[in-house]
Simulated scan of single mutants.
Amino acid sequence: MGMIHIDLFATLDLVGQAPGDPEEDPDGFPYGGWQAPLFDETVGRHVGAGMESMDALLLGRRTYDIFAAFWPDQVDGVDGGVAELFNSVPKYVASRGNPDLGWAGSTQLGPDLVSAVHELRDRHEHIHVIGSLNLVQTLLHERLFDRLDLWIFPIVLGVGKKVFDGGTVPANLTLLEPPVTSSTGAVLLRYGLGAGTPGTGDMRREDRGGGPN
């Protein structure tokens, strides 16, 4: 069965809206492009390395439209080969509307998103979801992902769409490797979806060294 990878860029207060471009998602959000001043060679290298095994893209409608307007015009070999990769793999769009599927290799998923994603996992080995926060909310709620690559950048915005928003179900995540830190203070956390739901305990128990004062 194939794996669903969620690749996200977020602030310390977990805003993931419009990281790359002021016009990406400007509706009521004044900080579009917040990631650009903090993006360095380390971030670029690890982002590219994390996508090397990608054999399909799964995107929400808005992210798809942004990518489809940009990547087909990029020269092969630029951006560490990302353009060539994005243009060559199949693209799947989660949308209730009628998106323009002019980007080569694009297909709109059916109305039953959960079933459609399960079918994609039978068809591909490594499916990457980039941005697409509305789609990500569904995948988190359904526990329909295997890996979360979360870049955290050292700024706080206070407004904007959050990575973990209302409706997220409790889940355990397992850190897959030591965090990566960039020169700008960005940190990459690579998690896998764990089994079960978060447990609870009592930090006041004497055997934990946290007894009452």
Score class of each variant (00 low, 15 high):
Met1Gly: 02
His5Glu: 00
Ile6Trp: 00
Asp7Val: 12
Leu8Tyr: 00
Phe9Gly: 00
Gly16Tyr: 09
Ala18Gln: 09
Pro19Ile: 10
Pro22Gln: 11
Glu23Gln: 14
Glu24Ala: 13
Gly32Tyr: 03
Gly33Asp: 10
Gln35Cys: 06
Ala36Trp: 07
Pro37Asn: 11
Pro37Lys: 11
Phe39His: 09
Phe39Gln: 12
Asp40Trp: 11
Thr42Ser: 05
Val43Pro: 04
Arg45Asn: 07
Arg45Ser: 13
Glu52Trp: 01
Glu52His: 10
Ser53Thr: 14
Ser53Leu: 06
Met54Cys: 08
Asp55Met: 03
Leu58Ser: 00
Leu58Arg: 01
Leu59Tyr: 01
Arg62Met: 00
Ile66Ser: 03
Ile66Arg: 07
Phe67Met: 12
Ala69Arg: 13
Phe70Tyr: 15
Trp71Tyr: 08
Pro72Arg: 10
Pro72Ala: 09
Asp73Phe: 13
Asp73Gly: 09
Asp79Tyr: 15
Val82Asn: 13
Phe86Gly: 02
Ser88Pro: 00
Pro90Gln: 02
Ala94Arg: 04
Gly97Cys: 06
Asp100Phe: 05
Asp100Lys: 12
Leu101Lys: 09
Ala104Lys: 15
Leu109Asn: 11
Pro111Phe: 08
Leu113Cys: 09
Leu113Ser: 10
Val114Ser: 08
Ala116Pro: 04
Val117Cys: 08
Glu125Arg: 15
Val129Pro: 01
Val129Thr: 05
Ile130Cys: 01
Ile130Arg: 05
Ile130Lys: 00
Ser132Val: 06
Asn134Phe: 02
Leu135His: 01
His141Ala: 15
His141Thr: 08
Glu142Gln: 12
Asp146Cys: 06
Arg147Ala: 03
Asp149Ala: 14
Leu150Cys: 07
Trp151Thr: 08
Phe153Tyr: 14
Ile155Asp: 04
Val163Met: 09
Gly166Phe: 07
Gly167His: 08
Thr168Ser: 12
Pro170His: 11
Ala171Glu: 14
Leu175Asp: 01
Leu176Ser: 13
Leu176Lys: 10
Pro179Cys: 13
Val180Ile: 15
Ser182His: 08
Thr184Leu: 04
Tyr191Asn: 05
Tyr191Gly: 04
Tyr191Arg: 02
Thr197Pro: 00
Gly199Pro: 03
Asp202Phe: 07
Asp202Asn: 15
Met203Gly: 00
Arg204Gly: 05
Arg205Asn: 09
Arg205Pro: 03
Arg205Trp: 02
Arg208Ser: 10
Gly210Arg: 07
Gly211Thr: 11
